[in-house]
Nucleic acid binder design. Structure first.
Length: 318
DNA sequence: TGCCAGGAATTGC
DNA sequence: GCAATTCATGGC
């Protein structure tokens, strides 16, 4: 096992993850705390609480089967996952470890990114400031797609409200140590709805149609993360674009956050444009040709460059 | 009050 | 095949 690689071990009392050297738990907390409206995890001080669904992963479809994770960072610079609610099986503990590794992108070696970034006028200050920040993902495909479709909304606040409403209406929750944790609704539960059902949750009729359509494809098995991961990146993008409601921005966002494609580059993203403009003090948003030139410079690391630029927006607003 | 915001589909030329 | 329009809420 090389020192630049993450690993995990089952210590019985807890599951221990040894992160790679370029890992900042503080940056994880900052990112995960970015909105008070977020419902899919809870931050309590330095702890992250997160509920995982066991039914859809094991394929048993057993109701009420969820796993609650409490994630902390120790002074030995390791991540500890504990299970405040129950004593999970070895398989479930392994699942938890894999989820966290995936969520925080711990398998990635960022050295090449930092070498590239150091020579890049736009990225250089950001890689110094946010060193150890990793692309925080959305491992579940349905959740990633729903969040992306919600994120097409005019206001980010509205997108959060849409997701919160959907989760509180159709998801399951658990309350432990005074903390409420939610599971994202199963695709099968949304697949049977009609667009009118989602209108009161602040979804437009269009977006309600998109989300139900996506839920149906996933529920019937014609769309899955594992299938997308088997395709080459371009084919995966085309497959996503074939979904109604998924345009270039959404396809690239999902590639970045769920499929973990480092080449994913949501080039038309408004936040990306704002961030570049602010970093370079441009009088107006960058032109498309200019954005393409940046993308070429960041070849292989477009997703990371984009994520670091998004991160810079939180500093802009204080 | 009226304008503008982000992204995708739909409509119009 | 493009550009223009529609969707529809909320902040300024």
């Amino acid at each position: 096992m090389s020192a630049t690689q993450a690993s995990w071990m089952d210590r019985q009392e807890y599951v221990e993850i040894i992160p790679p050297p370029d890992f900042s738990f503080r940056e994880c907390l900052i990112f995960l705390s970015r909105s008070d409206e977020e419902i899919m995890h809870t931050i309590q001080g330095e702890c992250i609480y997160k509920a995982l669904s066991l039914s859809e992963r094991s394929g048993q479809g057993e109701a009420g089967c969820m796993l609650l994770l409490k994630i902390t960072y120790t002074n030995h610079r390791t991540l500890h996952i504990t299970f405040p609610e129950q004593q999970p099986s070895d398989t479930e503990r392994a699942l938890a470890a894999q989820y966290v590794m995936e969520w925080f992108d711990l398998d990635k070696d960022l050295e090449a990114y930092y070498q590239l970034g150091a020579k890049d006028s736009l990225l250089a200050p950001l890689i110094t400031r946010y060193r150890g920040l990793r692309v925080i993902g959305i491992p579940e495909l349905f959740e990633a797609l729903v969040w992306a479709v919600a994120g097409q909304q005019i206001h980010l606040g509205l997108a959060y409200r849409m997701k919160r409403n959907l989760v509180q209406q159709y998801g399951r929750d658990i309350c432990i140590e005074g903390t409420q944790c939610w599971l994202f609704p199963e695709p099968a539960e949304i697949a049977v709805l009609e667009p009118e059902d989602l209108r009161p949750l602040k979804f437009t009729t269009r977006k309600a149609e998109y989300i139900i359509g996506i839920a149906r494809q996933i529920a019937e098995g014609s769309l899955s993360r594992s299938e997308l991961l088997q395709l080459d990146p371009q084919q995966a993008r085309d497959r996503l674009l074939a979904i109604r409601g998924v345009g270039a921005w959404t396809a690239d966002y999902v590639r970045m956050k769920c499929l973990r494609d480092p080449l994913a580059f949501p080039i038309a993203d408004a936040g990306l444009h704002q961030a570049i403009r602010a970093q370079l003090s441009l009088p107006h948003k960058p032109e498309m040709a200019e954005l393409e030139a940046w993308g070429t410079r960041w070849a292989g690391w477009q997703a990371y460059a984009t994520f670091y630029l998004w991160r810079s927006l939180y500093d802009e607003r204080g």
